[in-house]
Design a protein around this nucleic acid. Structure first.
Lengths: 165, 165
DNA sequence: CGCTAAGCGGACTGACCCGTCCGCTTAGAA
DNA sequence: TTCTAAGCGGACGGGTCAGTCCGCTTAGCG
């Protein structure tokens, strides 16, 4: 069903504000602040999203899809190891700017978007492992779990991910 | 000043309960639950510790001292690299069992106990770097910051900490 | 333009939680 | 055994936050 024009405007601003607040403060950002920043009453938030959890999930789904697309794009790079490393650095950058992503990684709920991301990472990872660029005893989930650390220590994490000498 | 016998008993149980709660739930554990588990009213908690922060600090100080002693003890091992690696694994184990420690690492307040720990790690680290067992571009603070990750991925972190090939 | 349902937002509820306070209890010295 | 100060704990205040509800507003159809 189509929203009334003013409602759609509010929804857009709400999503934008939620994205910012969650990025800055993580999953603990309060609905009140999100509503304030969007310029609406917080009752309005709950008409669009039944719970705070639902709002957060919507924001995260968007980010996950974006990252999955990044992974797909990285696959174009012919050098398997280079493609993998570059992807890890890119995602790590995204995490450094977005606390909500770090929080999301911890809960690790199995949404379709997360599955898509895991699948994409799996392909990148598998190819890099076949090429001997990445150790074989890690999974795509492991790689994603290491991303927050990689946002502070990319070189250490990437070195650690290479096959042991 | 010496406490009355019953007060001392309550204090002991309080510290034990606080240690458990913070370990399980991190710094967000509530005073109410700690008091409940200790079998005292929560008013009693505040007579011993002015704020929740003070109670947490007391618990953390104990852990920090323990870890600093661990570091000192590891120094006895003659192989510099081995000593360093073993210490990292040990601390990582402690972190895996104690969410409060992870939370403590993030705030990274400069208490005397933390300083002692950092100093001890610095000596271990420096010796390992001199021996060529650990890369030179990391500090003791970096090592401590990597501990939470090492509690899930010890091999990857330790490999990443070795000098680049 | 008039009307109506969609939309709005702020007051309200209830659940926590930190920290204070005070009347009751009791350890333990005399 | 008596007495008193140390100790206790629960009621209370003040604050935050998620989620509900309802009377007012307004978009936009006919």
């Amino acid at each position: 069903m189509k929203l009334r024009a003013d409602a759609q405007r509010n929804l857009d601003r709400l999503l934008e504000a939620a994205g910012e607040c969650f990025a800055e403060q993580g999953a603990d950002a309060s609905i009140d602040e999100i509503a304030r920043r969007a310029g609406v009453g917080h009752g309005t938030v709950f008409r669009r999203f039944a719970t705070k959890e639902a709002l957060l999930a919507a924001i995260l789904a968007g980010h996950m899809l974006e990252l999955a697309n990044d992974a797909e794009a990285s696959y174009a790079e012919p050098d398997a190891g280079e493609a993998f490393n570059r992807f890890v650095r890119r995602v790590a950058d995204a995490y450094a700017r977005n606390r909500a992503l770090v929080d999301a990684m911890k809960r690790c709920e199995a949404t379709p978007e997360v599955d898509a991301l895991v699948d994409a990472v799996e392909r990148l990872l598998h190819r890099a492992q076949e090429a001997g660029a990445v150790r074989r005893d890690v999974t795509a989930e492991d790689v994603l779990a290491l991303i927050p650390t990689a946002s502070s220590y990319p070189d250490i994490v990437l070195d650690g991910l290479r096959p042991p000498r």
